[in-house]
Structures are given as C-alpha cells and as structure tokens.
C-alpha cells in the first residue's frame, strides 16, 4: 500500500528528501504517516486507490500574493490548498488544519479582508490577494485587541482552534456582527471548539468588539 494517500495533503510540495535538516514538524508528519499506514485496515485502504502522484504528473501553477504584508511569488502544484501553502510552503503554521473539509474553521484566514476557510480553496486561485494569517495580527510586538481579549477571557483550552477563532472574530467584528451574545454565537458558528470554550470565546469577541 502506498503512503502517498496519507501524505499528500499534509506535506504539500515540501521535499521530504531534501538536504534541509528535518524539522520537528517533518518528523511528526513522518511518524503520522507511518502510523496511518499500519493502522488503516487493508480492505478500507483498497477502496480508495491512492492516485500516487508522481513528480512528472504534477503540473506547476504560478501564483503571486501578499501574506501579512510580504509578497510571495510561488510555483506550486495546482492541488495545493491555500492552507497547505501557508503551512508547508511559507511555514506559517499558526493556521491549523482541522477537518480539511470546511466544517471546523480552524484554518480560517483573511483574504482581501474577508474570512474564509483556507482548506477549501486552491492557492493557485489567489493571484493578487492580500492575505492575513494569525501571524500577521500583532503589530510592533503588541498583540491585536482580539488576541488580548482571548487571553483575558480564557477563550481557549487546548488552543488548536484558537488561531481560526481569533481570525474569524476579527472578521466577525469588522462585519458588524458582534453586537450581542446571540449575534456572536450565530456569526461565530463556523468555528468549532472541541474543548467547549465557547463562553470565553463569546466574552472575548464581545469585549474586543466593545473596545473597537
């Protein structure tokens, strides 16, 4: 059985065999891939034939966009999501991969000022875009007011959904959808928190909206 199926999305176009020293993340990815390949039952694996992409099959697409004010011109595999390019290519790992199917909101980023889930869009579709990730919110070492509010109100527990929650909250407040607790709950519903830190999240969004 090929490991490609389980590696494809996670590794982006990072060359695992490159001479660059393996980072902690790369080691974790390798470990994860090995685990996956030994624990997925063969019968299940056979039903989704891995379309083992070979380097020859990957057709490059060119894209140029700005992330947190820095311009990037990239040549990439058209299959790469904007999320994978942020994490694997630009090493902006603050943006998290949760469900990878648009349901959890952990990968929320701002594209041209609007919050989107970066897992359900191809990087190749964003030439000319102005992108903001969690790494781009603080300025001159000062946290963004929404970041401060999340700390103050303990709007997290494990923290995995937090970058997506915070970016989504920035979008929510900018849209004018943080006027009441009910409104915040409705307009933040695209971000799931498995720890259930919702009371803190709502309080943080309300507080940050008030300070605006």
């Amino acid at each position: 059985m090929s490991d490609d199926k389980y590696w494809d999305d996670a590794r982006g176009d990072v060359d695992i065999a490159s001479t660059r020293a393996l980072s902690r993340r790369s080691v974790l990815q390798l470990a994860g891939a090995v685990t996956a390949s030994t624990t997925i039952p063969e019968a299940f694996a056979n039903t989704t034939p891995a379309a083992a992409p070979t380097p020859a099959a990957a057709i490059a697409a060119k894209v140029s966009f700005s992330v947190n004010g820095v311009r990037h011109s990239l040549e990439l595999d058209p299959r790469q999501s904007l999320l994978d390019v942020m994490r694997e290519r630009l090493e902006l790992t603050g943006t998290k991969k949760g469900c990878n199917q648009g349901a959890c909101g952990a990968c929320t980023i701002l594209v041209n000022g609007k919050r989107i889930v970066s897992c359900l869009t191809l990087a190749a579709m964003h030439s000319g875009a102005e992108i903001t990730t969690i790494e781009g919110l603080a300025s001159n070492g000062d946290l963004h007011p929404v970041q401060e509010a999340f700390i103050k109100h303990e709007g997290f527990q494990c923290g995995y959904c937090t970058p997506g929650q915070i970016i989504s909250a920035v979008g929510c407040i900018a849209e004018g959808h943080a006027g009441s607790a009910e409104e915040i709950q409705f307009w933040m519903s695209g971000n799931i928190c498995r720890c259930g830190a919702y009371p803190g999240i709502c309080a943080a969004v309300a507080d940050a909206a008030g300070r605006n």
């Binding site: 648009g102 989107i116 979008g171 929510c172 695209g190």
Partner: peptide, 9 residues
C-alpha cells in the same frame, strides 16, 4: 445557509 466563512467564498 453554511457558515460566515463559506458564505464569503
């Protein structure tokens, strides 16, 4: 329909 993020897309 959907979520705020998906409606933006």
């Amino acid at each position: 329909g959907a979520s705020p993020q998906l409606r933006n897309m």
